[in-house]
């Protein structure tokens, strides 16, 4: 999510209207159609059906809801870990492999990224079902005796979401790796460092902030994700975003939904703050 440049323009001072004035339309738009609606909804958590913090008590002290928090964090952690573990080698490959090999990989990444979110999720529904291609192949190879329950599981959601998050890890990391100074690694080799030592002592520290920032981005996005968990997940692994939708759509409890939303917002904002911090650190090359 680090699409904002860290480099700053020097301030060119003009008349007020030509600097701050330019911000006005955007700010007004945001205030009217984003801030006010959000506040109205969040306020319900304190006022409906009666004034008080009742909903927050329910949310934090009911075991079922606490489990939903745990599920949400577990899912976000898993997706982040898998995305980083797969994304780093791919980014590395893209940054240094010859063009004729890296280009097809990159095209596939872009194509999958631009394919409709629902279409991609739908494909996983089919792939992972009991009679889907994966289970059928495993059955045909006699690796399993009966179909694995892949659909509607933590596994399914993790796979589906990793699929969506991968580009958000790969592209920033590729750009970072492409910026590394080859001379540094040549020097290390000359000094007798093995590949493993260079990797641990130079490579990883050099990309650490990018890795961290990409990781937090994926984590934040995963925390509030709704579509994939609701299509691929199971009831026993419900996440916070699903709970909010369920409270509004079928339990009709807008107060509790507002409370859950506020908790989700606070967590998201906190993590966003962490990510800004990471981004602000200059990329140091040891």
């Amino acid at each position: 999510m680090s699409i904002f440049p860290t480099r700053r323009l020097r301030v060119a001072r003009g008349p007020w209207l030509e600097s701050y004035g330019l911000l006005l339309p955007g700010l007004i738009f945001l205030a009217v159609f984003f801030v006010i609606p959000l506040c109205l909804m969040l306020m319900l958590s304190f006022t409906v059906p009666s004034l008080g913090l009742e909903h927050y008590r329910t949310l934090f002290f009911t075991s079922a809801y606490r489990r939903i928090f745990a599920n949400t964090f577990l899912l976000a952690t898993l997706v982040t870990a898998v995305s980083l573990a797969l994304g780093l080698p791919v980014a590395w490959f893209l940054a240094i492999a010859p063009r004729r090999w890296s280009q097809p990989v990159q095209l596939v990444l872009i194509l999958s990224m631009w394919t409709n979110l629902l279409a991609r999720t739908y494909a996983w529904v089919v792939l992972l079902q009991d009679t889907g291609p994966i289970n059928q192949t495993l059955l045909a190879l006699h690796l399993i005796a009966e179909p694995l329950p892949l659909m509607n599981s933590l596994f399914a959601v993790t796979v589906g979401m990793t699929y969506i998050m991968l580009p958000f890890v790969v592209f920033p990391l590729r750009n970072r790796i492409a910026m590394l100074e080859p001379a540094l690694f040549q020097a290390a080799t000359l000094c007798g460092a093995s590949r493993m030592t260079s990797f641990r002592r130079i490579f990883l520290p050099a990309i650490a902030t990018t890795l961290g920032s990409a990781g937090v981005s994926v984590f934040v996005m995963s925390l509030g994700y709704y579509v994939t968990p609701s299509l691929l997940g199971s009831e026993s692994r419900m996440v916070l975003a699903e709970l909010i939708a369920q409270l509004v759509q079928s339990v009709l409890d807008w107060g509790l939904a507002g409370a859950a939303a506020l908790v989700l917002l606070v967590m998201t904002l906190f993590l966003y703050g962490v990510q800004r911090r990471l981004n602000r650190q200059p990329h140091t090359t040891p």
Binding site: T62, A64, Q246, S250
Partner: peptide, 14 residues
């Protein structure tokens, strides 16, 4: 309904 729904969803989520 409300009472059953709450318990139902909590049970499903267990």
């Amino acid at each position: 309904h409300d009472e059953i729904a709450r318990r139902w969803y909590a049970w499903q989520a267990e």
